[in-house]
Every structure is written in C-alpha cells, then in structure tokens.
Write a protein that binds this DNA or RNA. Structure first.
Lengths: 331, 331
DNA sequence: CTGTTAGCGCTTTCAA
DNA sequence: TTGAAAGCGCTAACAG
C-alpha cells in the first residue's frame, strides 16, 4: 500500500522545490521557468500519479471549486435536464457540480464547506421568506423566482402558456380549460398568465371556473381535470401546466368516457421520454431547461466572482412538440 | 461583513484554549472537563454561530465525512429511490450523500478528495473490466453485480422475475413472452432467469424466440414487444423487465390493434408514479430499492471502517402491485 | 529562474 | 482539568 503522493514528493523526484511544482501544475502565468525544468516537473507528476489534496488546497485558497445543486425531487426529469446543463457549464469553468436531494434549509448545513455556491431548485410547495437562505454560500434560484433576496434564472413560462393555448385556439378550440399548477409557485402563475393572455388576444372570454389549480403530479392533474371536464358546456380542450399532471388529466378524461383527442384535446407542459408512448402520444410544450441550467451555473459563477447579478430569463423561446393528443374540436 | 468564526475565536470568547473547544465540540469521551467550562465553551460556540471549517478538518483527519453516489441517469426513478435510502443511512451515520451524474470513470476525478467512499450505479450499457475502479476511494456497486473486484448490493431480481411470471401463470397464461433487459447487465439476466425458472416449474416449455432483448427504455420495449407480438401463436401475456420498456410494450400492443389486458396481459418491473395512471394502469413488480440504498450505504461505511464486505442481496422479497394490465387469457 | 517562508483552521499527543 | 505545540498538504508573497 503506497503512501499518497504529496507535492513535495514530486518536488523531490524532479529535484526542485515544492512551490515550483505548485506553480507549474496550476499553470501560473507569471512564472518564468526553464522548459527543461518544467518538463522534469511534469514528468515526475505524471510518473508518480500525483493528485493534489483537495482539502489542503481548499484550506489554503478558501475555495472548493465545487458548486452544489439542491433538487426537491431527484426523479424529476426536469431537474435532471437542468442539472445536466448546469454540470456542463460548471465543468467548462473547472467546477464540479454536486447534487443533493431535499430542501435548501435541510441540506445547506451538510453542504457547508463543500461548495462555493448553490443552485436552489425549490419544491413547488415551498414559499421561502425574505432572506431565508442568506446565511452561508452565494445562492441562485433555478426555475423559480421568489421575493427572498436571491437572484434567479427562469424560463419564459408565460410564453409557454401562450404557445400551448394559441395552438389550441388555432385548432379551432374556444372552450379551453386550464389545469393550472400550484399558485404559490410563480412558474405556475406565469403559465396561467400565458393562458389568460392568449385567450384575451383571441377575444375568448372564460370565467374563473375554467381554471382548476392542481399539484404538479398525476393525482393532482387527475382531480383537477375531472372537475373541469364536468363543466357545462364541457371544455373541448385542456391545457395542463405539467407533463405529470397531463397524464393524470388523460386518465380523468378516459374515466369519463371521453376520447382523446376526439372529445377533448390535451396539451401538456414540459416533455418526458415516455410522453411519446402514451395513448395518444402527448402534445406538449418543451422549455429550454438544459440551457436554463447552463445559464444558472454561469450566473452563479459570476456571482462568485462578485459580479453584479440580475434576475435572468432564458431568451430561447419554448417549442411546441406536436404529437397526437390535440386536434380540431368536433363540430 | 463579519469575518468567519474560527475555533480560536470561540476559545478566546470562552477564555480557554482552542484545543479544549475542539474536544468539547467533537464530543471527545476521554475528556474530563469542569461542567461550567464546558458550558462556557458551548455557549460561546452557539453565540458566535461557529461552523467548523470542513477543509481544515478534512486535511487534519484525512476524512471528508461524505460519500458519493454516481448515477448514470439522474431522471431515473429507481436511482432516485435508491439514493433516498442511501442518504438516509448515510445521514444516520453522520455522513453526507453527494450525488453526481455520469459514469464512474468520468466523474471519479471530480469527486477525488471530496468523498470517502463511492456508491456506483452503472448504466446498463457499461461492462467494466476487472479492477477498473480500483484507483481511488473505496467503492461499492449498487443494483448491479460485476466481476470487476468491487463488492455489490443488489435486490433479488430473479425472485422478481419469478413473481411476475408466476402471477401470469396463475392467471391461466401459458404463452408468456419476455421483453428482457440488456443481457450485459446482470440484473436483466437474473430477471430472465426468474422468468425461465417459473415457466420450468409450471412445466411450460417455450423456445428462445419467446424472449426478446431490449434496452431499459420505451423505444426498446416498443421494438421488442412488437417482435414478440407477431409470433404465431401469439403470446397471451408479456413480462417486461422494466417500467419504461413496459410503456413501450403497451404502445406496441395498441399499434397492433391488441387490447390490454383482453388480448394481451402485460406485467412490468419496478414501479413509477405514473404507472397507476396509464391506460390501463400497469400491473408491476416492486423491488425494495430504498432498502437497497440503505444497505448499500451501510455496507460502504463498513468498508470504510475496513470491515470485511461480501456481495449482498437485500432479503426483502419483491412485491406484486396488481393494477389493470393483466387478466386471465381469453379462451 | 528558483527557493524560503509563513500560514490556512483544525486535531491530537504530550506536558503541566 | 487545561494548555502548548506540532503538523496535515498546499499556495503565494517575497527573497535571492
């Protein structure tokens, strides 16, 4: 069992001082060194398979070179996509992305000292108070904007809501109901706003009973859609603010004996690998989540450099993925 | 902006030496100290909101008090469940679980120095060579057993395969085909073995054409089931080795104009939140994944204590979740 | 162009 | 019952 290789071991092997090795390996620009010396150092480092001690380096520099991301639900495809983008951007900047599962309040203590900054994905049920996460590392909210003093990166949920609704309108629908997300989440509120503004633009007037609030999951979508589909006159189309809720909505429609899309069209929000294999395949709105992750990481890194940060909305527009769950209304 | 609180600051505030504070706060048993002194130390620590410097502690003790888990697919519900169990067990032992996304080979360098041990979830397409992950931290394979010199924790996939198949047999099926997982993954092989042994026990003889290999995703299940359902005589039931593939299989059946479960019964493997909302709701076999995560973390921690570790299979038996996708065959 | 030096904040052995 | 001292492995300012 060989002892772990230290900087000084490399230095000894190369016949130089440890500080020289340090400067060579960290690519210090302001270092002038004889090419052959550098060569010897590099050779010794690779030969001995030197790996810098992270703790020592962190202790000295006061930087971990890692950023954390807290996700409320590890199994959520959306967070996975966001994380992938974030990891890419972090990696490019030489940082590692560490993911933890839970709420920021719960996991922050665990992460303390292991990360330089934090990307916070919040559960839709959380409503943070102002300044709640101030104590500790620089933080950035991902996919949610909250008045808690933390800057955010989001996507254009309103445009997504408008896109979905406009599509249904263009198909000829007028009685379009909305399975809205939990209204304490601003993403859900913005999607609702997009829905409402698309209707307004088209001159369609619908009362508040055409919107049913739901959690972002199957059971919620099932319940909310069940209520909506009992309205008289019945909606010919549903815009559902989430893929998982959309699955629940489809189940609710079937349970009422309604065919999709003949009797009721359904458009979802966000995409998932299984959406194309549902019966019928789900038409949905795809948001630039990976890009949001990338920009979130970039912005967090800027924050670490103490650059001024604003709330940011990813400029890439949402995309309509047309599959089989929406068609023109029967007449 | 207050400077960060050091051990010595607490010591100064309490009027003792830093080493005393260290021993008090880390609960050193072999320390005899006057109750009032201890009180003063504790009070000073809380008052100043002292947080130990992780890097300094790690540098000194050579332990990070964190374990890592690498998952090939962050969005996979199964890994999420496993991670939840692992996190729970790690937390109980005072460790933090850090999740990284990708392959062990890719992410190990990033994690070096940040964790004391590693839980490896492998992508089903990977086939590691012997000793591949030896260089670095102690590691443990989760949900997969491979001859690469790393101990593993798995669930009883064979029993799961048997359970699913026996259920179909008990329903009266004899022509039961199997959408098997990728055969380079031992989980998939064990499920196939369970299927085969259940058939053998029941005295049902079926040729190899009744098994179609598939990737663990919707498209794979769709293709494999499509092939199987064109067999003559047609299978009356399908045991699909994965939930996602089961969704694909359902789509394939529908495309052939077959009703589920009237024309063909389908039983899946693993569960997912959406499974209950499919059309029809998916009958499936649920494995003790959270428990596997727990035991994996416990075993890894034992490994860190240099205790001898064996390959382990979680003793909890799989559970059949009966929903609507399987029924007696038409006669 | 290269070496010396002084810590970063903590734990732990030893001494008082 | 408490304090002193050494050192984990690294970096960065300064000296030569």
């Amino acid at each position: 069992m060989r002892r772990t290789v230290r900087l000084r071991d490399v230095a000894a092997a190369a016949g130089v001082d440890a500080s020289v090795v340090s400067r060579v390996l960290s690519g210090d620009a302001r270092l002038s060194i004889r090419p052959e010396t550098r060569e010897r150092v590099l050779e010794a480092a690779t030969r001995l398979d030197y790996r810098p001690n992270t703790a020592a380096r962190t202790l000295k520099t006061a930087r971990t070179m890692a950023i954390g991301m807290i996700v409320p639900d590890l199994a959520n495809v959306n967070y996975a996509t966001i994380a992938q983008g974030a990891e890419e951007a972090a990696g490019t900047a030489g940082y590692t992305l560490l993911v933890a599962h839970g709420s920021a309040a719960d996991r922050l203590p665990d992460l303390h000292g292991r990360i330089d900054g934090l990307l916070i994905g919040m559960a839709t049920s959380e409503t943070p108070r102002h300044g709640e996460f101030g104590g500790g590392v620089p933080a950035l909210l991902v996919n949610r904007r909250e008045p808690c003093g933390i800057p955010s990166v989001t996507v254009d949920d309103e445009a997504g809501g408008t896109l979905a609704t406009q599509y249904l309108i263009s198909l000829g629908h007028r009685r379009i109901a909305h399975v809205a997300g939990p209204q304490n989440a601003d993403t859900a509120r913005r999607r609702l706003r997009g829905y409402a503004s698309a209707l307004a633009t088209a001159g369609v007037e619908l009362g508040p009973e055409w919107v049913a609030e739901s959690s972002f999951d199957e059971a919620g979508g099932h319940a909310a859609a069940g209520r909506l589909l009992r309205l008289e006159p019945r909606p010919t189309a549903l815009f559902v603010a989430n893929v998982r809720a959309a699955i629940g909505a489809m189940a609710a429609a079937r349970r009422l004996g309604l065919r999709i899309p003949e009797d009721v069209s359904i458009v979802g929000f966000h995409d998932a690998p299984f959406a194309a294999f549902l019966d019928p395949p789900l038409t949905t709105v795809r948001m630039p989540l990976a890009e949001m992750g990338r920009q979130a990481a970039d912005n967090l890194l800027a924050l670490l450099r103490r650059e001024p940060i604003e709330d940011l909305m990813v400029a890439i527009p949402p995309e309509l993925v047309v599959r089989g769950s929406a068609t023109a209304p029967a007449r």
